[in-house]
């Protein structure tokens, strides 16, 4: 089977982002961009399933501006067979992303779609669930273990109460949690090889996706700062400080 993997480009997780003083956005010019960490985990899982013989082909999908192609090459260097770049200059909502994936699902007919559980920029945690709903297929979110056999996925999910295991008929949508795997590093020869792997570029407008966004972001602000703290010298002082605040 084929596996489609969502591969979003986001501000690197180590960057301390700055909100623009006029409240129109966050500063992204000259800031390091990387693969969304959960998407690297998604790609790693797809590659492992291919290595186990469960899948034949792994396709990375990115939605974004023209220069996203270079980012998709990283996914190819990590081991994906090919890439699909859905090109759009506009930021897309999770619903638009899900509708776009649905179009690709219809043409590619994958057995599995693996997405990250959330992107670390918008922290929405929606796209995988929305795709599963629109596709009318199972979803297994926050996956920390995936086993595929007999046309079914058995997935362990990280939920608030502990670890839940569910069984889902394929095709299905899986979203990855942090502990699913440790993504591999890209090796130099693989970067060279990735240059000859195919990238299909499709204009979002040509897919017939309704890209209307009924949620508008009107203002960005820095979070309120906590007031400066104090240092204490030993356990006794700490206990005294907490007792003074009525906390112990």
């Amino acid at each position: 089977m084929k596996i489609l993997v969502g591969y979003k480009r986001v501000v690197d997780y180590n960057v301390r982002i700055q909100v623009k003083p006029d409240g129109t956005g966050v500063v992204t010019d000259g800031v390091k961009l990387s693969a969304n960490p959960f998407d690297d985990i998604a790609l790693e899982e797809a590659l492992r399933l291919r290595e186990k013989g469960v899948a034949e082909e792994v396709i990375v999908v990115g939605i974004g501006p023209a220069d996203l192609t270079a980012h998709l090459r990283n996914g190819l260097a990590m081991g994906a067979n090919r890439a699909i770049h859905v090109q759009t200059a506009d930021a897309v909502s999770p619903l638009t992303a899900a509708r776009t994936f649905l179009k690709l699902v219809e043409t590619e007919q994958p057995g599995l779609v693996i997405l990250g559980k959330q992107a670390i920029d918008d922290d929405a945690n929606q796209t995988g669930q929305m795709l599963a709903a629109l596709w009318d297929r199972p979803q297994a979110t926050f996956a920390s273990k995936v086993e595929i056999a007999d046309g079914k996925a058995t997935v362990t999910r990280e939920v608030d109460a502990g670890l839940e295991t569910i069984e889902a008929d394929l095709p299905a949508v899986i979203t990855t949690d942090l502990r699913l795997n440790e993504p591999r590093f890209i090796k130099l020869p693989d970067i060279m090889k990735a240059k000859s792997k195919p990238i299909d570029v499709i204009e979002l407008g040509s897919l017939g996706v309704d890209a209307a966004d009924h949620i508008k972001t009107t203002h960005f602000a820095a979070p309120p700062k906590r007031s400066k703290g104090v240092m204490v010298n030993d356990a006794a002082e700490l206990v005294a400080a907490l007792k003074q605040k009525g906390l112990l």
């Binding site: 619903l95 929405a124 929606q126 669930q129 599963a132 709903a133 979110t141 990280e158 608030d160 009924h214």
Partner: peptide, 19 residues
């Protein structure tokens, strides 16, 4: 919570809205 995060986007998509 993990319950709401799992369920609500699926509901939203069925209603044709973002969340």
């Amino acid at each position: 919570t993990t319950f709401g995060k799992d369920l609500a986007p699926r509901v939203a998509a069925l209603l044709g809205v973002s969340q």
